[in-house]
Design a protein around this nucleic acid. Structure first.
Length: 217
DNA sequence: TGCCAGGCCGGGT
DNA sequence: ACCCGGCATGGC
């Protein structure tokens, strides 16, 4: 079977299993960008607490985070862990957003995707996964997001080498899928759902894996 | 009770 | 070009 067929089969299998997920959990593009930074190596439940703190304080806007003291921001996002570095990283992002685009995500995302990706990667605290999450889920641009679940699940089924780099894994998807926002969005969401709910172990294969058909290829 | 979560950076080889 | 320690809270 061709890689292309396998990928589509996996996608449809997951979609049938979980149903449509319509990611990312977040009401606005700005909230999604904030969440993308806060969720770095962190359980989403903790991120929710931090975002709720920002919402309750009515601070979930670029201009407001731009003005707030970094120490105060750090206290608000404390539940998300790594709160001091993440406060810096959020500051770096909103500074970029405000000073380059007047705080308007719409203006930022009007830019060419590849160029914007380079600019995001140049911000300290934004690596490839965070940049691609922002581009895909906040900006509706077709960049496939690779995360720990993706590596774990796909290397376990021997579709990618375990030591593959981020861009190698990303290429595996983008070279074998149509470059569509809807597909990239839903596919990544399905992978995360699988990793969170069923394929949770780092070591053993899960017994009730919906992708078990891959084992008898 | 310890382990781990939707990374990333900086310094050392 | 890799490898590793540091960053931290809350849930199981």
């Amino acid at each position: 079977m061709q890689k292309r067929e396998i990928l589509l089969k996996i996608y449809h299998c997951l979609f049938d299993f979980f149903g449509p997920l319509n990611w990312w959990p977040g009401d606005t593009p700005f909230e999604i960008m904030v969440g993308a930074i806060l969720t770095q190596n962190t359980a989403w439940g903790n991120v929710e607490k931090a975002i709720n703190n920002l919402k309750k304080a009515n601070l979930l806007e670029a201009q407001k985070l731009y003005q707030i003291e970094e120490e105060e921001l750090a206290e608000l996002i404390r539940p998300s862990g790594y709160y001091k570095v993440k406060a810096q990283r959020l500051k770096n992002l909103v500074t970029f957003l405000v000073e380059e685009y007047g705080g308007s995500e719409r203006k930022m995302f009007a830019e060419d995707g590849e160029e914007l990706r380079e600019k995001l990667l140049a911000i300290k605290g934004i690596g490839p996964e965070t940049a691609d999450s922002i581009l895909l889920y906040a900006g509706n641009k077709p960049f496939f997001v690779v995360d720990a679940y993706t590596r774990r699940i796909f290397s376990r089924h021997q579709l990618i080498p375990e030591a593959a780099t981020y861009s190698e894994i990303q290429d595996f998807f983008t070279q074998n899928l149509d470059r569509e926002v809807k597909l990239f969005n839903e596919f990544h969401a399905q992978i995360v759902m699988l990793g969170k709910t069923i394929c949770t172990s780092k070591k053993e294969n899960c017994t009730s894996c919906p992708l078990a058909f891959l084992n008898s290829k």
